[in-house]
């Protein structure tokens, strides 16, 4: 049997019962916040690069970009390697793992006159629906070709839904070139 623990109600003093001291205390606390807020001395104001009122950073003028951590997960994008080969081979593992089903890939064959014909396969179309993407990074984690990365960009806007779907060109434009990745399709291959 569980032990029953009887906890006594706290004994309130007259001051507690009157509420007034507690209310005064609360008013004083908020007042001190107001004063330090107006003087720009709120705790953490410097660290947060405050505009001088409270701790709030003025967003479009000031940005966090340079202090984003290494592991920051922004928009997903496709990358090319040193030789401008698109790294994605459309294995569709990201499409499979994607929890909100934001990725849609149409696989295609690389024509035999292409310099990278030995890779055989690449995406014909690669769409990521940014209205669905939840920035979980599973696509990056599952990719066997190191072809998709979550970038530090986080400003994705569009004036309608179709603009929020990143197609293959857009994804390569965001991703750009990445060097020093594993190259499975080297000359030995």
């Amino acid at each position: 049997m569980a032990e029953i623990k009887v906890i006594k109600r706290p004994q309130l003093s007259l001051g507690d019962k009157l509420y007034l001291p507690a209310i005064a205390k609360g008013l004083f606390l908020t007042f001190t916040h107001a004063i330090s807020s107006l003087r720009g001395t709120t705790r953490g104001a410097k660290k947060m690069r405050s505009s001088g009122l409270g701790v709030t950073m003025q967003y479009p003028e000031e940005k966090w970009d340079d202090s984003l951590p290494e592991y920051y997960r922004g928009v997903p994008a496709l990358v090319t390697n040193e030789e401008d080969r698109e790294k994605c081979v459309s294995c569709q593992l990201c499409e499979f793992i994607c929890p909100p089903k934001a990725i849609k890939i149409t696989p295609g064959e690389i024509p035999s006159d292409d310099p990278w014909a030995k890779v055989e396969k690449r995406p014909q179309a690669f769409d990521i629906d940014m209205t669905r993407c939840i920035y979980c990074g599973m696509c990056e984690e599952v990719c066997p070709e190191e072809a998709i990365f979550l970038r530090k960009d986080y400003v994705v806007t569009g004036s309608d839904r179709s603009e929020m779907v990143h197609d293959k060109d857009r994804l390569y434009e965001i991703g750009g070139k990445r060097v020093g990745l594993v190259n499975k399709w080297n000359d030995l291959k």
Partner: peptide, 11 residues
């Protein structure tokens, strides 16, 4: 055996 499971239809 080549490591091309990502492009292999049998995968």
């Amino acid at each position: 055996h080549p490591l091309d499971c990502p492009i292999c239809d049998q995968a």
